[in-house]
């Protein structure tokens, strides 16, 4: 890790470092509040994750190892953030393509538009 001179001086004098409990508590709070605000239980969240994954997997092949699926909270809004890397597109299946288009982030996402499927 390379520190700039001013960062180094700041660290030297304030003793501030990212491993102190202040950083940790902020991360924990952000996570808890995202779930509190969405009023969603871990079980419901897991169910929703699996259902969404199942739907997406009908159309594309997902990279199972680098999936990201979480709630994020900022500025009193909560967003469902999903990052679902695609390995490949499944062969065309006519009856599936006629199904209604799925807007993955519609029900939970409010202004900050966190849902991205990439």
């Amino acid at each position: 890790m390379i520190l700039s001179i001013s960062e180094f001086i700041e660290r030297l004098f304030t003793g501030k470092n990212a491993t102190a409990s202040g950083t940790k508590v902020k991360q924990r709070l952000k996570f808890i509040l995202a779930h509190d605000r969405a009023a969603i239980t871990p079980q419901m969240f897991e169910e929703m994750r699996q259902e969404i994954m199942a739907v997406v997997s009908k159309y594309v092949e997902l990279d199972q190892d680098s999936l990201e699926f979480r709630l994020e909270s900022d500025n009193r809004y909560t967003a469902l953030v999903a990052n679902l890397p695609i390995r490949g597109i499944k062969a065309e299946e006519p009856e599936l393509l006629q199904a209604e288009p799925l807007d993955i982030d519609a029900p939970l996402t409010m202004p900050n538009n966190g849902g991205n499927v990439g």
Partner: peptide, 19 residues
């Protein structure tokens, strides 16, 4: 404690609560 980053600062709390 805030100075030592062992307590959330006022800015941290405001960022989280947004009020």
């Amino acid at each position: 404690m805030v100075k030592n980053n062992d307590m959330m600062s006022v800015e941290d709390i405001l960022e989280i609560l947004s009020i």
